[in-house]
């Protein structure tokens, strides 16, 4: 299982690479609500996460991902398998 802080840092980096302001990102940041990601950007973010962590994200877990923290926890679970 990968370290939570390490995963978090990579998510921040990924979001920063796609044009988000690092200073405004926290674990509580809502991906759609706060960052205003549209549906294509959500797909691009998930693709990036899959490639970066070499995981396959089952679609059903997305239903419970609202914040950056939710996403990091799911990735941690998936990399632990």
């Amino acid at each position: 299982m990968r370290d939570y802080e390490e995963i978090l840092a990579e998510i921040y980096q990924g979001l920063q690479d796609s044009g988000q302001d690092r200073a405004s990102l926290t674990e509580d940041t809502e991906l759609v609500g706060d960052l205003g990601l549209d549906s294509v950007q959500v797909m691009e973010m998930l693709l990036e996460v899959e490639d970066r962590f070499n995981i396959s994200i089952p679609v059903n877990i997305l239903a419970d991902v609202v914040t950056v923290r939710d996403l990091a926890r799911q990735i941690q679970r998936l990399t632990g398998d």
């Binding site: 809502e30 991906l31 759609v32 609500g33 959500v42 679609v59 059903n60 997305l62 239903a63 419970d64 991902v65 609202v66």
Partner: peptide
């Protein structure tokens, strides 16, 4: 439908 979206648990 399988309309699962980011954060959409309750809605689905």
């Amino acid at each position: 439908p399988v309309s699962i979206r980011l954060g959409g648990h309750g809605a689905y």
